[in-house]
Amino acid sequence: MADHNEFGKLAEDLAAEYLKKNGHTILTRNFYYQKHEIDIVSELDDLVVVTEVKARSYDTVIEPHEAVTRKKIRSIVVCADFYLQEMNIEKEVRFDIITILPDEHGVLQITHLEDAFQTYDAN
């Protein structure tokens, strides 16, 4: 497995553990629908949380969450809609982004952006 794939898996594992420690129940990871994917689907109280994980193993010019483009948001929303229908879930949904970046000492730092797609307009 390529190093970036291994780091991506590590980042998703860290994000899932972070969510669990913060009261989430993980429902599924890496859910696919056609060409779309959701990294993590969790439940927090009466809310379904769809989380996109973005990580970089190096310092970068753009923040990882800035890599979540309108096209990517649309893809996640389509996949989430299918997931909710497929699992027959009728709950409010929130879309979050978790970013994972090393600090100046190489220690991985987690940032949780709740309701990250709030300004998303599907049109």
Rank of each mutant, 00 (worst) to 15 (best):
K71V: 02
F95D: 02
L108W: 05
A116T: 08
E66N: 06
G106K: 00
C79H: 03
V48H: 01
L10I: 14
K54E: 11
V49S: 10
D46A: 01
M1L: 14
R74P: 00
V41T: 10
S42G: 13
H65P: 00
T28W: 06
D81W: 12
I98L: 11
A116M: 03
I98Q: 01
V41G: 07
V48E: 00
R94P: 01
Q118A: 14
D46W: 01
D115W: 08
Q85I: 01
V68F: 00
V50P: 07
E92K: 14
P102I: 14
V77S: 03
V50Y: 01
R94G: 08
D39L: 08
H105W: 01
G8D: 15
V68P: 08
E37L: 08
T119N: 12
A116G: 09
G23L: 10
L44M: 04
V68I: 05
D46I: 07
D3T: 05
A80Q: 05
L19K: 13
L14P: 08
T60L: 08
N123Q: 12
A2D: 05
N5P: 01
K9N: 12
Y58Q: 15
H65R: 11
E52W: 00
Y58P: 04
G8A: 09
I73P: 00
A116K: 01
D13V: 02
G23E: 04
P64G: 03
R70M: 11
S75I: 06
D46P: 00
H36R: 12
N88M: 09
E114K: 15
D13H: 08
I73K: 11
N5E: 11
Y32W: 13
S75R: 02
E90V: 00
G23M: 05
A2Y: 09
N22L: 10
A2E: 14
I89N: 07
L10W: 02
F31T: 14
I26D: 05
K71Y: 06
L19P: 02
M1H: 05
Y33Q: 13
R56A: 12
V41S: 06
A116H: 00
E104V: 08
E63C: 00
L84Y: 06
Y32S: 13
D103P: 04
Q85S: 15
L47I: 10
L108F: 15
L14W: 09
K71M: 03
K9L: 15
T119W: 09
E92R: 11
Q118V: 12
I100T: 04
E6I: 15
D3K: 10
F117I: 09
S57I: 03
F95E: 02
T60W: 07
D39Y: 00
F7L: 14
G23T: 09
G8W: 04
D103V: 13
S42A: 13
D96A: 03
V107C: 06
E90M: 06
D39M: 00
H4T: 11
K21C: 13
M87G: 02
L14I: 10
E63S: 03
A80I: 13
K21E: 14
M1T: 10
D121Q: 12
E52S: 15
V78P: 13
A15F: 05
E92L: 14
F31G: 14
L27V: 15
D3E: 14
E104I: 15
R29F: 05
V49C: 11
D96N: 06
E114R: 06
T60V: 11
V78H: 09
L44T: 04
K54C: 07
A16V: 08
